[in-house]
């Protein structure tokens, strides 16, 4: 089927299968491989992207369901030269170890900060609790989100 997707403020015309997952379209058809597939069943959050500013598991969304929505992947958050405050604080505080959960973590954190720029520690943990991490113990991830919130507030 023919669809149009808006990803990272760019429009794409695509031919996709009706049952094709948004995750696969992003990675395989658009080459946006920053979005990772972990469990493929909506439990780990590695494939988190933003859909109209809300964090969603892109493995649980069909590409066709994303038509008409504003999508953002990690590639749209920032880059090496212009990192988002979250990306900066994750690197600076050592919140990245193997890195596989990181894109999803950043997007869940961004969704939180976009609606609540001064979250408490509990609110951060709550917002990140759908993103599993096996390396960091979340300790530095939570601190990185706090640091980014301070920077966004300034």
């Amino acid at each position: 089927m023919n669809i149009e997707l808006r990803v990272n403020e760019q429009d794409f015309r695509l031919v996709v299968e009706p049952d094709e997952r948004l995750l696969d379209v992003l990675r395989n058809r658009l080459g946006l491989i920053g979005t990772k597939e972990g469990c493929g069943e909506g439990e780990c959050g590695a494939c988190t992207i933003l859909m109209d500013g809300k964090a969603v598991n892109s493995c649980l969304v069909l590409a066709a369901q994303a038509v008409g929505h504003e999508l953002m992947t990690i590639e749209g958050v920032g880059d090496r030269l212009h990192p988002h405050p979250l990306q900066k604080s994750f690197v600076e505080l050592g919140a990245v170890q193997c890195g596989f959960c990181t894109p999803g973590m950043i997007l869940s954190a961004k969704a939180l900060l976009d609606r609540n720029s001064q979250p408490s520690e509990e609110e951060i943990k709550e917002a990140m609790s759908g993103n599993l991490c096996r390396c960091t113990g979340y300790d530095k991830i939570v601190k990185a989100v706090q640091r980014a919130a301070e920077e966004v507030a300034r």
Binding site: G94, Q97, R134, C135, T136, G137
Partner: peptide, 14 residues
Amino acid sequence: PTQVEGQIAGAVAQ
């Protein structure tokens, strides 16, 4: 030291 803290926190979580 940052990595040491990261390794400890990761190990505690596991």
